[in-house]
């Protein structure tokens, strides 16, 4: 990466850039190419919907970008820093401080209360802003249930906690993997609306994997992943 490129990133507010990102899995039938030289860039305050059929590689791409998995080839830059060669602890630092992740299955920590779950990542990153946390809690409609445990919540409530946890750290990049996949249409819509609102306010970049063309349409750009190839119109 050249100095000029770095400067350009800063100018554009580029949060994420992938270059020729490739990933395949070994299966009993041989190697399966899931992602084939994916190039993707996303600026701050930008939201992109990642569409594709089940098994098209949407989750894999999010996992690679989120430093949860390693690519076979290619590069990933987050705020201009290449992350694929980072050490385990550096990747953990990155996830903790710069990336928020919302999973389809919520993946809240069952042993902690709503309040503790909300603050967990921010506390880990030592970036807890109590007033921001309080506002998040209020805006996500969780104020009355902060002392409850995840199992005592509805699916919609759990997903709002997951969104709150991811945003409490004020991440530079929010990744969401089918965040409304387990919710009914109405609840899903309301969770997404809130998420987009908060994304806008925090100024982070938002990348969401979804099946739903209806939900995807609410994001600024829509990309499609098909046979390992990403197409962004």
């Amino acid at each position: 990466m050249t100095i000029a490129h770095t400067l350009k990133i800063e100018e554009d507010g580029e949060i994420l850039r992938t270059q020729s990102l490739t990933k395949s899995y070994e299966t009993p039938l041989g190697s399966l190419l899931v992602l084939n030289k994916i190039n993707l860039a996303i600026q701050s305050r930008t939201s992109i919907a990642l569409m594709g059929e089940s098994g098209s590689g949407k989750s894999t791409l999010l996992h690679l970008i989120g430093a949860l998995d390693d690519p076979d080839a290619g590069s990933i830059f987050i705020e201009g820093k290449e992350i694929t060669q980072l050490k385990e602890s550096e990747k953990a630092d990155l996830r903790r401080g710069k990336i928020g992740f919302v999973f389809q299955q919520f993946n809240l920590i069952a042993s902690l209360t709503v309040a503790e779950n909300l603050a967990f990542q921010a506390r880990l990153a030592d970036r807890l802003d109590p007033s921001w946390l309080a506002e998040l809690t209020r805006r996500l409609g969780l104020s009355q249930i902060t002392s409850r445990y995840p199992e005592q919540l509805s699916g919609g409530q759990q997903q709002r906690v997951a969104v709150g946890r991811a945003l409490a750290v004020k991440p530079r990049l929010l990744l969401a993997d089918e965040p409304t996949g387990n919710l009914d249409e109405k609840t899903g819509d309301s969770v997404l609306a809130l998420t987009l609102e908060l994304v806008e306010e925090t100024g982070c970049a938002f990348l969401m994997a979804t099946h739903s063309a209806r939900l995807a349409a609410r994001l600024q750009r829509q990309c499609r992943l098909e046979s390992g190839v990403l197409t962004c119109p």
Binding site: L68, K91, A92, R96, I99, F103, R165
Partner: peptide
């Protein structure tokens, strides 16, 4: 299943 979310939000496997 229990430690995966904690790992995902930034705690290394060694920790």
């Amino acid at each position: 299943r229990q430690v995966a979310p904690v790992w995902a939000i930034g705690v290394s496997r060694q920790t």
